[in-house]
Design a protein around this nucleic acid. Structure first.
Lengths: 200, 200
DNA sequence: TGTACATCAGTGAACGCGCGTTCACTGATGTAC
DNA sequence: TGTACATCAGTGAACGCGCGTTCACTGATGTAC
């Protein structure tokens, strides 16, 4: 129960601890509403008001967590993509990684991708700031563009692919009792249908 | 404030009123958690304990509302599909109706399709009872099967299509600030890619 | 070297709120005799 | 025809809970003189 206070000048350490334990709360959450100030404070072993030392309110905390979640997602996909040889294989690996990430971290995925239940405008702090998921989307568009290479609008194809992956993952998470086919096969089939498959 | 009590023997009328006003609450809800017993009671002009006359607990009320939401969704798609001439055109109309429904009734769509935030097992009351969304999925599989007509697994293609539609709708609802292409065009393109388009 | 003071990193108690659910009740309406 | 009683369709008040947020505070550590 006795928590050792951070040394003087090191108050910023708590911010990091809050975010780390916040991600754990988020991981076990069914919905963003479960990520409460009090739950994160409990996880971090600190009293609720302590969070206000580093975040003005709950929305700010959630924003920071969503941001962090997207970056973890990006890194996971990047790492998987780098193992592929050639653009098509890289894209394919990114897609499989996408579904794997959601499957392994359902809490993170659902909360982060549903924008943490924040209303419009609550996400972007200052004006001109982009959506925290924008880099993730750009990475996908780039990977698609590398395959179609100069072909027609990669943005359109990326949207098709992204919608498919997100829908697949979200439905699968929400309705596991339905008769799901093999996901990896489904992804490869879809990539082929969208003319994004390696070595046709 | 003065609500006229239902006549004797007509207590079942309240059940219907609760469900109707419950759907309205659901329509304006950002998440299933907003559909509370007290909110529905307020909407129905009744005190909270009155709901217990017809539903054993909140989960039962939510189940009934989700069921109703799925049936409204089904009817909307069926009506749209019937206007099409030929299986492919019928499927196409169903797909466009899918996206339209979600766009017009975002609250219903999100709550109903996320299974109202009910945990696994909370949805199906008695054993052997199927998921309330199962008929909706079957209707889609049938529409797809009518197009591929005897071709290979319609279930797989239906899953591809459903994932795409759900993902498209969910992402669009969650992240309206991203650069979305024209949805109708996107749907037609995808149907063509999946070899499900009319008059190729 | 000593001491008064400022600052930092939090704590503890409390507020008002909405929630699901329970319990005893009320008042109108039908039925038995 | 009258009256006691049962039933029905709800109401009103209360419970315990977790929440976001505020506010005054505490105790350790550094700094000025």
């Amino acid at each position: 129960v006795a928590r050792v206070q951070n040394p003087r000048g090191q108050g910023e350490r708590l911010r990091e601890e809050i975010l780390e334990h916040g991600m754990q709360v988020l991981a076990g959450a069914a919905h963003a509403r479960d990520v409460t100030i009090r739950a994160v404070a409990r996880a971090a072993g600190v009293t609720p008001p302590a969070l206000y030392l580093h975040f003005p309110d709950r929305a700010a905390l959630l924003r920071a967590l969503v941001e962090r979640g997207f970056r973890a997602f990006d890194q996971f996909l990047d790492a998987a993509g780098q193992q592929g040889s050639g653009p098509a294989e890289e894209l394919r690996r990114r897609c499989h990684a996408y579904v794997q990430f959601a499957h392994r971290h359902p809490g993170e995925y659902r909360v982060v991708f549903s924008a943490a239940g924040l209303g419009p405008g609550e996400l972007a702090v200052s004006e001109g700031e982009e959506h925290p998921g924008a880099p993730s989307f750009r990475a996908l568009v780039d990977a698609v563009a590398a395959v179609t290479s100069g072909d027609s609008a990669p943005l359109l194809k990326a949207t098709q692919l992204w919608s498919f992956l997100h829908g697949l993952v979200d439905l699968r998470l929400t309705k596991p009792e339905l008769p799901w086919p093999d996901l990896d096969e489904l992804i490869d089939t879809t990539l082929a249908d969208l003319h994004l498959a390696p070595e046709r």
